[in-house]
């Protein structure tokens, strides 16, 4: 039981770190990859909370498709964020 609790706390801390990196990074490609990693960890958290349906949907939509669309959009525009 405590193993699951420790795993969940680690996953949540990594999700927060990935989200903060996605806001903080100036390189947009790295920010998108951080967002994809946070989304994949969120899918792992859904699986740990015994919701495999939502986990599959989150892994497909959030981690794969959103990252692909963002990367396609970055390829058409600029890569660096400007102030």
């Amino acid at each position: 039981m405590t193993v699951w609790a420790v795993l969940q706390v680690m996953t949540l801390v990594l999700i927060v770190i990935g989200s903060v990196l996605a806001v903080w990074l100036k390189d947009l490609l790295a920010a998108v990859l951080a967002l994809g990693g946070a989304s994949l960890l969120l899918s792992l958290e859904f699986y740990l909370l015994q919701a495999p349906d939502v986990a599959i949907a989150e892994a497909g939509i959030g981690a794969a498709l959103t990252t692909a669309i963002f990367i396609l959009a970055i390829r058409k525009t600029r890569r660096k964020e400007e102030e």
Partner: peptide, 17 residues
């Protein structure tokens, strides 16, 4: 577990690949 929406998302990510 899964269904139309989840499987469709998986196949669409394959299309993105």
């Amino acid at each position: 577990p899964g269904g139309g929406f989840q499987g469709g998302a998986v196949v669409a990510s394959a299309l993105a690949l």
